[in-house]
Structures are given as structure tokens and as C-alpha cells.
Design a binder for these strands. Structure first.
Lengths: 153, 153
DNA sequence: AAAATTACTGCAAATGATTTGCAATAAGAG
DNA sequence: CTCTTATTGCAAATCATTTGCAGTAATTTT
């Protein structure tokens, strides 16, 4: 959607970095992909277009994006210790993960602000960020499961 | 607080398991510890009382507790990929982590229910759990930082 | 446009957290 | 107290991610 390739190019230029074939490929995949891939998933997708691409390049590119605040990284409970990368730009948003197919859906809420404020008051702390993660079944998996239940009845 | 040692003993008994010295030690530390230790932290504490204890026993014990739903496991953004274990019993509660000292503070809120409901409606999904994590500075670190700022002024 | 500079890549080996196979040990039943 | 077998310590394996290094390819300079 938003042109990650452009934005990244500008930043690279301003810091003496180089726009390589590998980076351009990864940026554009991340940009168009409406998902939250793991490094490995991104690697597999990219590999179909450049069969010599290496996994460490994927990691290096993702870490660079992370430092530039162009992607955010998180570990969902379902994935245990594997990171997922989200190319959505800044705006604070939250996530739902389907415990069945691991699809991630983003959502917004203003209610977190109240939660932050209340926590700060009660604890004399200063809250800078916060995130909500919901788990459950997405529409598709819910439908499938209903189907399965009917069959088994 | 709640007697994890007791509860665990009952469950072990009912499944032909054994209450060993190592387990008793780990259970009681987890039970009294008002923190969210990593496996390594728990290991160091326990080691002071049993110098032959092995890290893999710590992991095995934690996983058993996790399966029994007596501890919950999560990865906070600040820790990257390292897990923290929480011996608090069932009730849904949420976490604040100080990005400076990594202390974890628990809190409650009823607002998450509204967030879940709204998400379900909008997405035809079924949400089973959800968790909120806040990041910022705790009271102590906030105080220290103010102090430091003053000194440096 | 070729040469020079050096950031970036692929590869292989290293790291850090967690897991697992196995032989030795020790709970708990009888 | 003996026997059975769940559990432990140890070392090696695994999984995700990182890093050193020598070769490659973007930019810059000439």
C-alpha cells in the first residue's frame, strides 16, 4: 500500500546505504503482503523470485527496517519464540491471531488509552506504548469447524 | 501465595507422577516469588539452595506446570525471544513491563471485554483470550531518571 | 565509461534459548 | 527393604537468529 520501497530508498540514501536487488525485492513483498510473516515465510516467498537469496539477508533487511521503525516485530503466543514482522506504518494498532490458521488480523481501539491512563495513575508509572493481542478462531476456521462438527454428529 | 506446592502435589499424585526435591524447591520459589522470572532467573535462585540442580530440570518442571495450567508463559517485547513464567493462577490479568529494569507489574481491567466483543462483531470471529501488555517506566525508574536528569542539568 | 571505494551478500560457523536421549538415581508402591 | 519406573543430570541436538569473512556489486570518483 504505502510505498515502502520509496521510503526505504530515501532513508538508505540519506545514510550512505545502498538499494540492492535483494532489498528491493523484500521491501516490495513486505509492502504488498497484507500479512505478518515470519522471516522464514518471507524468505520462501522471496525465493520464488530470486533463488539465490539467503536467509541471513532476509534477517539483516528486517532488522534494518526495524531500526528505521518501518516494521515492528512481535512474538505471538502461538508461535512460541518465533518473530513475526509487520510492515504497517507507525499508527498504533492491535492484533488478533487465529489459533488455528495463524492468520493475523489488525484492529484499532481507543479504549487502550483509558487503560494506560488508569494504570499510570494507580502506579505512578509512565506508560509509553501498549499492545493488545486477542486469540481465537477467525471467520474461516470458525466456519470450517462448524462444518466438521456437523459431519461428526 | 496460593499453595502451588499443594496443588501440584495433588495433580502429580493423580497422574502417577512423583514429588521430587527439585520440584518441591521450584514450586515453592515460584509460589512465593512475586515476579515473572525467566527460566534462567529461576534457576539461579533455586541453585542457591540446591547446587546440583540442572537447568533442564527447571525447563521440564516449567513445561509441566504450563501443561497443567499452573503457570502461563509469555515473551515480552523487551526480552526478544526469552520466555517469562507467571505462576499466577487462572484469572485473566494483564502486564506492564518497565523497559528499564524489566520489572513486571500485573493489573486488571474490565475494558478488554468490550474490545473482544467489538472485535467479534466486526469480524465474525470468536475470541477466546486476550492480553494487554503496556511498556514504560515504573515508579522507581521514573524517580531515578528524574534524579539523573537533575544531576545532568 | 572505467576504476576505485566500500556497503552488501552468501556461506558457514557461532550464538542463545530451549529440548531431548540416555544412563544413573531416587520416589513411592508393595 | 526391594522393585519398578518416573525423574534427574549431563551432553549433545535443535531452532531461530546472528556474525565473521571473503567475494560481489552499488555508487563515487576520475
Amino acid at each position: 500500500m504505502g510505498d515502502l520501497v520509496q521510503e526505504a530508498h530515501v532513508r538508505l540514501r540519506s545514510q550512505g546505504g545502498r538499494m540492492t536487488t535483494q532489498r528491493r525485492l523484500l521491501f516490495s513483498i513486505l509492502d504488498s503482503l497484507g500479512e505478518h510473516p515470519t522471516a522464514e515465510e518471507l524468505f520462501h516467498i522471496a525465493r520464488q523470485r530470486d533463488s539465490t537469496l539467503n536467509l541471513s539477508t532476509v534477517y539483516r533487511t528486517l532488522r534494518w527496517l526495524e531500526n528505521e521503525n518501518l516494521v515492528s516485530t512481535r512474538v505471538f503466543a502461538e508461535d512460541r519464540r518465533q518473530e513475526r514482522f509487520d510492515a504497517a506504518l507507525p499508527s498504533e494498532h492491535h492484533h488478533f491471531m487465529c489459533t488455528n490458521c495463524r492468520t493475523v488480523i489488525e484492529f484499532d481501539t481507543e479504549l487502550l488509552e483509558f487503560i494506560k491512563l488508569r494504570f499510570q495513575e494507580k502506579n505512578d508509572a509512565s506508560v509509553t506504548t501498549g499492545s493488545i493481542v486477542l486469540y481465537g478462531l477467525c471467520r474461516n476456521c470458525l466456519r470450517t469447524e462448524r462444518g466438521l462438527n456437523q459431519e461428526s454428529t
